[in-house]
Design a protein around this nucleic acid. Sequence first.
DNA 1: AATTCCATTTTGTGTAGACTTTATGTATTT
DNA 2: AAATACATAAAGTCTACACAAAATGGAATT
Lengths: 234, 234
Amino acid sequence: MTQTSDTTSYKDIKQTVLQRIRSGEWQPDALLPNEQELAVEFSCTRTTVNRALRELADEGFLERRRKAGTRVLSAPQRQARFTIPLVRDEIEAAGGTYRYALVSQETQTAPDWLTARLALRVDQRVMHVRCMHFSTNTPFQFEDRWIVIDSVPQVEQADFSSIGPNDWLVQTVPFTNVELTFLASRADATLAGFLDVSEGEPVFTAERITWLQGQPVTFAKMYFAAGYRMSTEF
Amino acid sequence: MTQTSDTTSYKDIKQTVLQRIRSGEWQPDALLPNEQELAVEFSCTRTTVNRALRELADEGFLERRRKAGTRVLSAPQRQARFTIPLVRDEIEAAGGTYRYALVSQETQTAPDWLTARLALRVDQRVMHVRCMHFSTNTPFQFEDRWIVIDSVPQVEQADFSSIGPNDWLVQTVPFTNVELTFLASRADATLAGFLDVSEGEPVFTAERITWLQGQPVTFAKMYFAAGYRMSTEF
DNA sequence: AATTCCATTTTGTGTAGACTTTATGTATTT
DNA sequence: AAATACATAAAGTCTACACAAAATGGAATT
């Protein structure tokens, strides 16, 4: 047999399965019929059922184990997918005009806390860059970044007065692994000045560590202006 | 031909493609060979190549368009997947003992800001629940939640003195859609008391709105104790 | 009673081939 | 020059089948 327009597609199956979970027909922890049985029910091949169930498992609705079968997850460990936008894109998407400004750029020996955080060797040298991102001249984000020189030797020749370190890195170094952390921090005097808020105000903060094949490449702290909200739907 | 142990698998292909992107062999915006050509190169079927490329596109490395082919994304819009854990799981995973305490529970008419936020009808009634989550008797999270009674009528009979509203909802109502927001807020007197921090301290906050087939179900604000970090790797 | 071993079940992944859908670039027409 | 039509290329999906790998539950053994 071959594909015709009235075939049940993997998308149809996904929908139907979700319906059954939502309607309570398949309760949490319940065992689903196996792929072969579902294939018969939906009059399609096991391959098609497999794709549907595999994607639903990937999306966090189902749990699948060989021999054990497929179950409805009791506490749907649904995953929020944050697309971390580039600052420029985020500002422009909100209708602002993006402006970048370098605050400082210097090479130095990695401070102790950074050595510990990135598991650097002692006295390893880093490029320290601080810069501002504005949306139509309103402070949007203050970025405090360290780049490991041994991992990106070209950085010693880089000039961040007109291009941001993130843009430069994205163009220059691929990366393999990222650790992203969100937290709330308190504006100290310096930060308050840059972001135009009062000292002591809460500041939404993101930290990002990037590795290339196990080697630490860069650590960045990004402090967002007052009222910033990081949002996603799923 | 059939599958043998020396076959190139879709995982191998994913790795190889990533290598080529990282090494710069396939620059951003570059057009990849088409599936048929790659199938020949990797001595496998187009189906296998398709799965590899499809997943890489899904993970944000590639862009695929029919007829136009497959390209390397210039600004890798990599997506962070946050698995939003249940509070209890999060506390227990960190080695703490979970304890729950109800602060208040009452039905009321939805306040204006909530009516606006959830697009409720005027004077729609909601259940307002406030509660605390402790990790070994240390405040971990203060939860401030509203549940739309029309969407979950059973909630009027619910007793949240021993089970948290989130646990109850997960067991009772499936959901279709979630909006999740992270922000930094400032501890007011009440919050400072619950979380055992000074007034004015920054508090990492998550807001969560849940819908069931277009109907708003619940709005929750979750205030985390000092020092909380929401972290993910990808 | 506990442990080890193993057949069996169920998902995981691959091959081979075909049809479907989309959209691009070119040719044609206006 | 602009708009339209169209052949075609490339990804998208399905069928049908096969073998692989994991893990469960029970049988056999200690």
